[in-house]
Computed example of a mutant assay.
Amino acid sequence: MIQDSSYLLPGNHNGVLLIHGLTGTPNEMRILAKGLNAVGFTVYSMQLAGHCGNEEDLCQTTWQDWYQTVQDSADFLAQKVDNLFVAGLSMGSLLALKLAADRPTQIKGVGVLAATFKYDGWSIPYWVKKLYFLLVLFKKLGLFQKKSFIEKPPYGLKDERIRATVSESMLSGDSASAGLAGNPLPALAEMQLLAKQVKKQLPQVICPCLIMHSGHDDIADIKTNARLVEKNVSGPTTFITLDDSYHLITIDRQRKEVINECISFFEQIASSSSSSSTTKIP
């Protein structure tokens, strides 16, 4: 049975929905969640469908299932706050962008953290980059559906101490804490379908976007992922390049910078929203 690892940190009337990445867990958002909550935000870090279990659990779900849990979580948090923000890590940022595109009047701002439309970072093997586009076809044909792409060091982490802790939990099979060690090919195919859909919808994102990405991302190259978002969304963007982190920027060396930038970004929007709502028309 999959354990629900979602958690709610009560705060003020400004809420932030946090979305983890593919094969990840709400734990990878916990430091950010605590940082946001410490300054008053109500934070809900959700768990995507099929996650925090085994590979079979994940492969029984589709990207539509993942997105449905995002929508349900947004509805849950919206009942508790006046202003709703969303931030996602890796694939989670794609789901966050889709939510903003689908709910332009509800979502006030998006944190796009290490956006991942495709695995093309410097640590990804050449054959994976070249064959990635075939995964959807493989799934349709039922080929290689029991195979997984096993992650290799540095596991998205530049900080060696944190890397050792995360890899130990991940390789021990503690998926509820650190996620899965492998990326099942069927799940990667679903992520590719999600990426295709989100690319089409980027122009529909009209709210402000905070885009943060490492210039040394080992999983997703900044030029083909983060810059894609910056170029295609319709809302105003703030682009920040990190220089001392790899992919998992919410827990890596510059995690405090990620927290501070998110706080500043969301607070500024919340402040302007509050001002406009209290302004009286003469």
Rank of each mutant, 00 (worst) to 15 (best):
I2L: 14
Y7N: 01
V16T: 02
I19K: 04
G21Y: 03
G24P: 02
R30G: 00
R30N: 05
F41P: 00
V43M: 02
A49E: 12
H51Q: 15
E56G: 01
L58F: 03
Q60V: 00
T62Y: 11
Q64L: 14
Q68E: 13
Q68P: 09
T69L: 00
L77M: 06
K80N: 06
D82M: 08
N83T: 10
L84P: 00
A87E: 05
G88M: 07
L89T: 09
T105D: 14
K108C: 04
G109Q: 03
V110L: 01
A114C: 11
T116F: 13
F117D: 10
K118Y: 11
K118I: 02
Y119I: 13
D120S: 03
I124Y: 04
Y126C: 10
K130G: 04
L131F: 03
V136Q: 05
K140G: 04
K146G: 03
F149D: 12
E151W: 06
Y155V: 13
K158M: 12
K158V: 01
S167C: 07
S169C: 14
S169H: 15
S177R: 12
S177F: 07
G182K: 10
P186C: 09
Q192S: 11
K200G: 02
K200N: 04
Q204K: 15
L210W: 11
M212I: 05
S214C: 08
G215V: 15
G215P: 00
A220P: 06
I222W: 09
T224F: 09
T224V: 06
R227G: 03
L228Y: 05
E230C: 08
S234Y: 02
P236G: 00
T238W: 14
T241C: 11
L242P: 09
D243W: 12
D244H: 15
H247C: 07
L248Q: 10
I249K: 06
T250Y: 06
I251M: 09
Q254E: 15
S264E: 10
F266C: 11
F266D: 04
S271T: 12
S272C: 11
S275G: 13
S277A: 15
S277L: 13
T279F: 14
K280T: 05
I281N: 10
